[in-house]
């Protein structure tokens, strides 16, 4: 197996190894073992785990660690240095293979991938006890629950998840309604959806929407809704209340209506 690798490289390695061993015979080779571990980790992160060189490096490191445990420091040092060399070889070879694959692959024709992604839909009751059917104004995104006329949205400042005094009062009023509904319908809970305006990346807005729903959840708990009855979700910028209508997409009035938390009555998780 060794003959497959650069003999010059190994010769150079060994030329370094023996003086090191002689010079450091009595020293615990912790630095060498740490270096071998780091090199192996870099090879693993590069994705070179399928290569023979990686397995050799892994094997030598294991041997080095066993020698270290037995206080056979010379052997431990030698094996650690060889392990590091093979890890470096694995990284180099893998990078070359990846480069070659990247050059060849774009010409490949790809067919449609059939997806089998899960989607969980809650089994919503047909009605909510104590709630007039006229009060229900529809289902929320992905049919996760019912939206009620009396549950008002909470709105936020730009790029903020802080809740103003005015919005706290809305949460208090919503909490009173939710408490009544949950008392009569113990199988139900409340879902808070966090939404953002379209500015910023999808990723950032998903996180911001989550923080908004989390902020509302905390206040809702202060007003007496048990934590286990509150679910949160972020939809980021996906479901604006006031969608952008080209070419008038730079509209603060619309954006302010989209930065919101929406209250939804749903089943318990």
């Amino acid at each position: 197996m060794l003959s497959r690798f650069s003999s010059a490289k190994l010769f150079i390695s060994l030329a370094f190894i023996f003086p090191l061993i002689i010079g450091c015979a009595k020293r615990i080779p912790q630095d060498e073992i740490n270096a071998a571990r780091e090199a192996l980790e870099r090879a693993r992160q590069a994705g070179a785990t399928e290569l023979e060189e990686y397995r050799v490096a892994e094997n030598y490191l294991k041997q080095a660690e066993e020698h270290l445990e037995k206080k056979e420091y010379d052997e431990a040092r030698t094996k650690a240095i060889i392990s590091k060399e093979f890890s470096e070889l694995a990284i180099k070879k893998w990078n070359e293979m990846a480069k070659k694959a990247a050059e060849e692959e774009p010409k490949r024709k790809v067919e449609i991938v059939e997806t089998e992604m899960e989607f969980k839909r809650p089994n919503l009751p047909k009605s909510i006890k104590g709630v007039n059917p006229d009060e229900i104004i529809g289902t929320s995104a992905f049919g996760r629950g019912y939206r009620l006329k009396s549950l008002k949205n909470v709105y936020f400042d730009y790029d903020s998840f802080n809740i103003s005094e005015e919005m706290k009062e809305i949460i208090r009023q919503n909490a009173d309604i939710i408490k009544k509904i949950l008392n009569e319908n113990p199988e139900l809970s409340v879902l808070i959806e966090g939404h953002c305006d379209e500015r910023g990346t999808n990723e950032y807005n998903l996180e911001l929407g989550w923080k908004r729903s989390q902020s509302v959840k905390r206040i809702l708990m202060l007003f007496g809704i048990p934590e286990e009855k509150i679910q949160i979700v972020s939809y980021g910028e996906e479901f604006p209340e006031e969608p952008c209508t080209p070419p008038n997409c730079q509209d603060e009035t619309k954006w302010s209506k989209n930065r919101r938390a929406v209250f939804v009555i749903t089943t318990k998780e």
Partner: peptide, 19 residues
Amino acid sequence: KIVSAKSFIPTFSVSPSGN
């Protein structure tokens, strides 16, 4: 279309080999 969604896909990434 190469990936259908039942809800939506916020972002994606392509591996260095494109595979």
